[in-house]
């Protein structure tokens, strides 16, 4: 089964981390994802820009374009992992490993449809190209 592990955290708090702390959290996350990757069970990994960079298009008679994220919540969706796990229990184990450092919460959502897409890798390069 494919699962999405969605990372939620208070953006203001994560934004207050010094760079070293941010790097340290990512490094510890890599310990979890590297294991999954070695077994061929890691799909796309995405880290989102802050919600201040978000724009929302809301359905209406005329679709409405709004600055900001979809929902005003205490914790924001900061990114997600796609993992291939045999069971929910296994996905929970992975998420536990991820949430150990840095706090926040991980929401596990089984995937209904998965298309790896055509931009893999290229997207990262494109978004950072000047």
């Amino acid at each position: 089964m494919l699962y999405a592990i969605l990372c939620y955290h208070d953006e203001a708090e994560v934004g207050s981390w010094p760079k070293e702390k941010d790097d340290a959290v990512l490094a510890k996350r890599a310990l979890v994802t590297d294991k999954l990757a070695a077994k061929g069970r890691l799909g796309p990994v995405v880290r989102l820009m802050p919600t201040t960079a978000a724009t929302t298009v809301r359905a209406g008679r005329e679709p409405l374009v709004i600055d900001g994220p979809f929902a005003e919540t205490k914790e924001q969706l900061l990114g997600f992992y796609i993992v291939d796990c045999a069971s929910l229990a296994e996905a929970i184990e992975a998420a536990k490993g991820m949430v150990k450092d840095g706090g926040g919460a991980m929401e596990i959502r089984p995937l209904r449809l998965f298309r790896p897409g055509t931009t893999a890798g290229a997207l990262a390069a494109e978004s950072v190209a000047p």
Binding site: D10, A12, E13, V14, S16, K21, K100, D101, G103
Partner: peptide, 15 residues
């Protein structure tokens, strides 16, 4: 939680 750094960050963010 193995270090208390997260409290610092939470306090700074909430300040």
């Amino acid at each position: 939680m193995n270090d208390l750094g997260w409290i610092d960050a939470a306090l700074t963010a909430a300040r």
